[in-house]
Every structure is written in structure tokens, then in C-alpha cells.
Design a protein around this nucleic acid. Structure first.
Lengths: 319, 319
DNA sequence: AGTAGGTGTGAGCAATTATTCTCTGACGGC
DNA sequence: GCCGTCAGAGAATAATTGCTCACACCTACT
């Protein structure tokens, strides 16, 4: 009688298929299915579950973003992120800042439109600037917008990719910029800057920020930190020799995401990063050059949220 | 500002896609989704529902019988059937009786294995005989097995495709055959037969049957009713001229499924059919020749359940 | 033959999901 | 500019679903 076993199992799978059809395709409830198939409601439930676990019924997401969603969820799982978004790459690779900006902006907006006052913190950079450019004008004076990074170069110029002032222009919130260079010329200068009343206030605010948006940059010969004049060539060389692969808000870290204890990191004038980060810090960054830096930031738990592009997400997951 | 509308809608669809992904593919609960997407639980529910209604998420049944199941459900809907099964056609078209038999037998078995006594009624014919052949031996004396159709030809021979005696042999139930010809030679003979004690008992039982399995046959020059000797050629010709396209348990009906009031129908010696049928009467029939007869039986509400094959189901739905 | 282990079933209950209702805020017409 | 209408969000509630348990049956092993 052994030969009736597989047959019996087949019959059950057929029934399960039928149940799954009725449930997912015809939209019946399990009670209706039970009735139609002449089984108890519990059995109907089991049949549906069986069909799912046996992969008799397949779910397919028919949406342009479906691949990105899958990547985002994979990243979220792998690095225990509170938030992860992956934006599609346009075919020609242009327009990346825009895509990231739009995506990050929608998240930022959810905080901005809230009526209850929040503290929102930001680093600077091209990507965050693209985000701010997507924010429509509004009037939300109840929020506090804090910069966690000095935005002047050594030469006193305002940084090219200033974020917080532009944002506060648009949303009318109180702003707390950090009127110092990103990297002080000496440890002593850094210490001095950090005793300033304005800096301690900013630091206290930043530490209670509901969310912090940060850029993630790579460190190499074309590093933005250098190109934008925040560090000089010698400092950049030193960082590279120390193994730096990326930087967040001026703080350089190695391939494992560990913040360096030497080089310019001894003189960064901004609010320190937590490692591992305890609050919601969303890294917004994309582009193949940044892949290693972003991966490192994730490994080192410097960020708890990530908004990136499809190519980077794919590359990170492939490692 | 009109141009932000479609954008807004897109964003919602993106979100809905994400929610659906998390729900159906990642198996998250709606609360987890709500948390991950930073929306309320209700909104998450709405997003999932939206994704389903917008067909963002597709369900596909990956099962050999999936097409048959879809056909069966379509038939069930169209003709308000309590039960409908469609069995696949084997590539070469052979083996149809077997397929129908196996399928019908599984339904019959569910009644037979029950411990509480039931009355089960049957007509006769090749297809039902194939069903009975699939029933394993068991010992269920509590049931009553009733024939609703006379099973003798005019010449006193037992019908070639006798059902109830074979079934009772296998399951050990009490049997109530109808020891008359299927069609009497005259109205008077029919009336006489129907006053017999044995017939009235059978009729009473049949009318309380939990389920009735009937064959559905076509009426044409190669009609089983004629080939098996239940009616002669003149009677067949008459039926065809009266517009008969099919027959159930000897009762002929036209293309609309209306039982004829003339011809041999005035002399059928079996239990009458209800029209429309109120109880569970399962028609078991397949093969392209029977398509019209089966369709008519459905239209005329002579059966409330159908077990047929894929080709017939497809043909019926195409009409 | 009797019993232990496994498989499947139904009941009841807990968790999840769907629906309904109400409210708020936005838009358009007057 | 004001009011009506209406979409969208949240709360309450109803319905559905999933889980756990206990029991029954069946198998296989002693």
C-alpha cells in the first residue's frame, strides 16, 4: 500500500492549490474556501499555508521599484537598519543626486510637516544639498535645525554645499549652524572652538535630534573633503595612509567603519559621531565611488538608516 | 501645482508596492510594515489593499492543476454550482473515464467514510462505473445506496454499466436498485411499475439523498441510451426530433436543459428529476461529444455540481 | 496484541486584518 | 473670503486568520 502515499500527498497538494487559488486569486475567505472544498475552516487555513510553504502560489511584485525594494530590504536585514531606501539608477548614470535628493526629501518632509517641535540634525555636502533643494517652502518655526559639522574652510569661506541655512530658509525653522571650520588647524584650536557657548548648545541639541541626515563620502585623491577645501593635500595623504576609506561629517573611518584616532580626526570641530550609533542617523549617499565608504559606514554602525542607489546596494550586497 | 498630483500618486503607489513586498514576499505583518514605513497600522493595511487592487502585486499559482482550478471556479460562478471540478485532459485524449472516475471517487469517498448513515443516490453509465471502480473496499453498512434509474433493458438484461450493485459490493452498504427497465414500453406500464412497493421506497429514499451522482449523456445517433439498448431507434429518432440534446438518468432535455414533456420522457421509469434541482446532484461527465448536453444540463439547472474535463469546461465557458 | 510515536483534526483563543465611523484639513465653487 | 464637499487619517469595532492544545487515529515496533 506504500504506493498510495505519494498519491495521497498529491491530492493534498491539489487541494492546497485549489485553496490557494480561491484565497489569493478569487479573494475568498478561508471560511468560504472551507465550505467550497468541504473541509473545516482550520483545514482550509492549513491548506493555504501549505500552498504558500510549498511555493505553489507565487507572489510577484509588478512595479518599477520592485527590485529596489528587494535590495533595500536585504540591506535593512543585513545591517539592522531602521530605514533603508534604494533608488533606481537612471540608465545613463546621471541624475543620481536628484534621485537620492527626492527620496531623502520625502523622508525629511515627514519630520518637517509634524506640528510637534523636533530637532533635526544635518551634516553637509552635495547630496544633502540636493535633498534640501527638493523641500518645498513651508512655515514650520517650531523645529530646530542643527548642523553637526563646521561649514567653513580654513580660509573663512562658507562651504559650497551648505545645508542648514538653505533648509531653514525654506521651512522657517530656527537654525543652529556651526560657525567654525570643519577641521581645526590644531588640536588646541579644536578644543578652544568646542568650549564656545554656541558650539556646546549645538552639540546638546544634536544629541537629542529626532533624526540626523548625513552624507557619506569617500576618501581618495578626488575626495570632496579635499576638493571643497576642508583639508589640504598633506592631510588627505595622511588619512589615506592611515587607511581611511570614507568620512561622515568630517570624521574619517577605515574599511571596517572604525573611526580613526589619528590624522585629522583629532581636529574635527563638529559634533562627535556615536559608534555604534544609538539614534536615527540616516546616511544619504550614492554613486559607485562611494560604495566602499558606504559599506564601511554600515559595518562600523556609524549610520542606522541608508538612502542609496541601486548600483551601490547591489555592490554592497554582493560582498 | 497640478503637476505634483501624479507625482504624489506615484509616491503612494511606490509605498504601496513596498508594503505589498513586505507583506507578501517578506511575510511581515501589517504592524511591522507600518513601523518600517513609518505609517500607522491602518495606513499599512490600506497600502497593502491598494497594491492588491492596483494589481501591483500578482499572484500566480504554480501547479499543474492551476488552469483546471480556474476553469472550475469560473463554471461554479457562472452556473451557481455547489461543487465543480475540472480534471486535466491527457494529451492523447484517452483515459478520460479514469480521470473523471478518480476525481468523482474522491468526492464519493468523503461521503462513504463518514460514520453517520447517509443515503447516496446514483444513476448509471460508464462514467459512474469508472468512479465506482476507484472506490477501495471498505465496510460501511450504515449507508444506503439508491439507484434512481431502472437498469434493465426492455429485454430483461441487466444494464451493462450497472453502478449501485458494484458499489455496494465494495462498501458493504444496503442497496436499493430499481428492478425495472429504464424506459417502460408504455405510459401504463410506467404507471404500474411506479406503484410497486419497491419503487416507492426507492423514490422516497432518493428524495432524501445527501448527494446524487448522475451521468450526463448526449443524445444523437451514437447515444449511450440507444447503444445500451434502453431505447430503440425509433424512440431515439423521436427524441432527436423533439430537440433532445442530452439525458440524465434516462430523462431527456433540450438545448436549454428543459426536460421534454413528450417522447420517452413520458415513460421513464426512474425517480423524477427536479428542475431546478434543489439538492446536491453532481453530474459526472466529460468528452467533447457531451459538451452540448452538459451545457444544457447546467442551463436547465438539472445538476448542482459538475465534474468534467478541461476541454469541456473550456468549451462551455467559451459559449 | 499492546503500546509509543507520529500525523492529522477540530476547538478555542489570541493575533491580525478589514471595515465602519468620525474627524480633520484641503480644495473648489459661489 | 466663506461654505460645501470630499479625500484621507485615525479610532473603534467586527471579521478573519493563525496558533496551541488535546484528542483520535494510524503506524510501527516490541
Amino acid at each position: 500500500m506504500g504506493d498510495i502515499y505519494p498519491e495521497k500527498r498529491d491530492r493534498k497538494l491539489d487541494l492546497a492549490a485549489h485553496a490557494a487559488w480561491l484565497y489569493y486569486i478569487a479573494g475568498n475567505t478561508q471560511e468560504e474556501i472551507a465550505c467550497k472544498l468541504n473541509v473545516s475552516r482550520q483545514s482550509a487555513q492549513r491548506l493555504v499555508a501549505l500552498a504558500v510553504s510549498e511555493k505553489l502560489i507565487k507572489f510577484r511584485l509588478d512595479h518599477p521599484l520592485s527590485h529596489c525594494i528587494a535590495l533595500a530590504e536585504a540591506l535593512r536585514d543585513k545591517f539592522a537598519l531602521s530605514l533603508c531606501e534604494v533608488v533606481p539608477n537612471s540608465a545613463d548614470g546621471s541624475d543620481l543626486y536628484n534621485g537620492l535628493g527626492v527620496c531623502a526629501a520625502t523622508h525629511l518632509e515627514t519630520y518637517l510637516v509634524a506640528k510637534s517641535p523636533s530637532v533635526l540634525a544635518f551634516s553637509s555636502g552635495r547630496t544633502l544639498r540636493a535633498m534640501v533643494d527638493q523641500i518645498p517652502a513651508m512655515d514650520q518655526p517650531q523645529h530646530k535645525i542643527v548642523s553637526i559639522v563646521g561649514n567653513m574652510s580654513h580660509y573663512g569661506l562658507a562651504g559650497r554645499h551648505e545645508v542648514v541655512m538653505h533648509l531653514s530658509d525654506r521651512v522657517g525653522s530656527q537654525t543652529y549652524p556651526v560657525p567654525t571650520p570643519a577641521v581645526a588647524t590644531s588640536v588646541e584650536e579644536r578644543d578652544l572652538l568646542q568650549t564656545q557657548r554656541s558650539f556646546t548648545a549645538v552639540k546638546a541639541l544634536a544629541e537629542q535630534a529626532k533624526v540626523t541626515f548625513v552624507g557619506v563620502s569617500h576618501i581618495a585623491w578626488n575626495a570632496p573633503l579635499h576638493e571643497d577645501g576642508f583639508i589640504n593635500e598633506a592631510e588627505l595623504t595622511e588619512l589615506i595612509e592611515l587607511g581611511a576609506v570614507g568620512e561622515i561629517a568630517g570624521w574619517a573611518f577605515d574599511a571596517q567603519g572604525m573611526l580613526l584616532r589619528q590624522g585629522t580626526n583629532t581636529r574635527v570641530a563638529g559634533v562627535p559621531l556615536q559608534q555604534p550609533v544609538q539614534r536615527l542617523v540616516i546616511g544619504v549617499a550614492g554613486g559607485p565611488r562611494k560604495t566602499e565608504a558606504i559599506l564601511a559606514a554600515l559595518k562600523g554602525q556609524l549610520i542606522s538608516g541608508l538612502i542609496t542607489d541601486e548600483a551601490v546596494a547591489t555592490a554592497i550586497l554582493a560582498k
